Simulated assay, not measured.
Amino acid sequence: MEDVIIADAKLTPRASVSQVTLDWACGTDENDFELTINDPDAPEIERGWYFWLDGSDVGGRIIDRRATVSGGVSTVTWIGQSWTGMLAAKILQPDANQDYLTVSGKLPDILKNLLKRIGLDSVFTVDSSDVSTLSNWAFQSPRYVDAYSGFRTLLASCGRRLDFKVSGNRIRLGIVPVQTIANTIDSDLVDFRVETQHRVTNHLIGLGSQELKNRLVSHWYADANGNVSQTQTLKGVDEVCEIYNYTSADAATLKTETQKHLQEEQTGGKVDVTLSDGVGDGLRVDDKVTAYDHSSGLSVTAVVTKRIVKIDSGIMASTFEVGQGIVKETESGR
């Protein structure tokens, strides 16, 4: 296992330590860490310092500490934000007198400008040659969004994801294509439990601003394959209809959000996915895993939502969590 680098508030390395205990996470709902250092060569750490594993995405900024005394022995645990947590602590918001924050240009340039906007350009270095370009892309839903979520949504619109790596004492923020790891259940690399569900909502009525007969309404429909449009194909006993209330939405926002929410419901069923260590190597948040079971004819594609890294007794282990998967059936499995 590589040593943990301890750096001061200016990102200048001050020590390399190996006797540590670490619980670090990044993703949808956890972007923090707890670090205990038992190395006698460790310097006197201060709040505002950093740590990282060179060449990896693991690291963050120390912002607090916890002292535990047991049997007369005091243990200090440093608590802080992972790189993603630092982004999540910032808000992207529209300029004064503007409806939305709008960006244009190549993705690396957009991220550089956004990092400067939130005051983190001195910490993160955008390191990417990606040529994907956006024109007048707006942060619409929500208009005020934490930078980590905003960056992920922005990049996802181009099939890209964030890629953190520390090298040369610089925290490099890369942009890479979302990868899909495909395996079969026979490989013992992906375990999953699938329950098909054909009675998902296929007609969503969005209700926006205004009142009574003047209230804004937007109808969206899903077909038998989960494709969403404003043309209804499933009717009568096959129609499953719901209401989506967005009382502050104007016409454009209501249309976009109603379509988005109906699309999110087209999962095809419920699924639990477990990844083995073999599959997890190289995976990062927003990558996808696809597994297929020949006997049932069911396949599932799930998105990685969280990455957890732990170090204990010199051994590092990574685990992943995935979100609700998309279930598909072949004709043989029907």
Rank of each mutant, 00 (worst) to 15 (best):
N113A: 13
T21R: 15
I110Y: 06
D287A: 04
Y100I: 01
K213W: 10
F139C: 04
F51A: 09
T102C: 03
I205T: 14
Y292S: 11
R14V: 14
V17L: 03
Q93G: 05
R14K: 13
L22S: 07
G59H: 06
Q197Y: 07
R199S: 02
D277I: 01
R160C: 01
T256R: 15
S18R: 14
L134E: 02
G85M: 08
C158A: 14
R161A: 04
D286T: 15
G208D: 08
K260D: 01
D223L: 07
A138H: 02
K165H: 01
S332V: 12
L216C: 00
S218K: 13
K213Y: 12
S129Y: 05
P40N: 04
Q93E: 13
T196F: 05
R160K: 14
N245I: 11
T12S: 08
I311N: 08
D238V: 00
H219N: 15
G105C: 06
G208I: 03
L11M: 11
T77V: 10
K10M: 08
H219W: 05
V126D: 09
R199M: 01
S128Y: 07
T290A: 05
S18I: 06
S296D: 03
V271Y: 00
S149W: 04
G27L: 08
I205Q: 11
K10G: 02
T290R: 15
S276K: 09
S132K: 11
S157T: 14
L189Y: 06
F192T: 06
